[in-house]
């Protein structure tokens, strides 16, 4: 077993996915298979190999500190499910 049902629930908690029991069962089986398959990367001893987080070796890409036009408020809120006097409205933290 590469991953347990409990771990799947823990990960779903981190990812903020309210999975149904049926989904948790299915995902436990699928993730177990997938992790077995991808787990073979562990075969390699890469102690002194540097990691690559980017295929392109660029550095110091930055922009000058000059403000530009922001979006008009109507565009900001155009897709908002719920807005209230210029704000995005959400149920609060409980």
């Amino acid at each position: 077993m590469a991953i347990s049902r409990e771990e799947v629930l823990h990960v779903a908690g981190l990812a903020w996915l309210a999975l149904t029991d049926e989904e948790v069962d299915r995902l436990t089986g699928e993730l177990d298979k997938i992790l077995d398959a991808v787990g073979i990367v562990a075969e390699l001893d890469l102690a002194d190999v540097p990691p690559t987080s980017h295929p392109l070796d660029l550095v110091n890409v930055w922009d000058e500190d000059v403000p530009r036009e922001s979006l008009p408020l109507e565009d900001v809120l155009a897709n908002a499910p719920e807005a209230e006097n210029g704000h995005f409205r959400v149920p609060t933290w409980r």
């Binding site: 890409v61 922009d63 403000p67 922001s70 210029g86 704000h87």
Partner: peptide, 29 residues
């Protein structure tokens, strides 16, 4: 490159990047 400052009307100093709209990308200041 949205302006930084206090006292502006809510959400009037925002853009696709700082609103995290799909596909927007950060550029370092």
């Amino acid at each position: 490159r949205c302006p930084v400052g206090f006292g502006a009307e809510p959400n009037t100093q925002t853009c696709p990047v700082c609103l995290a709209f799909p596909g927007a990308l950060p550029v370092v200041n």
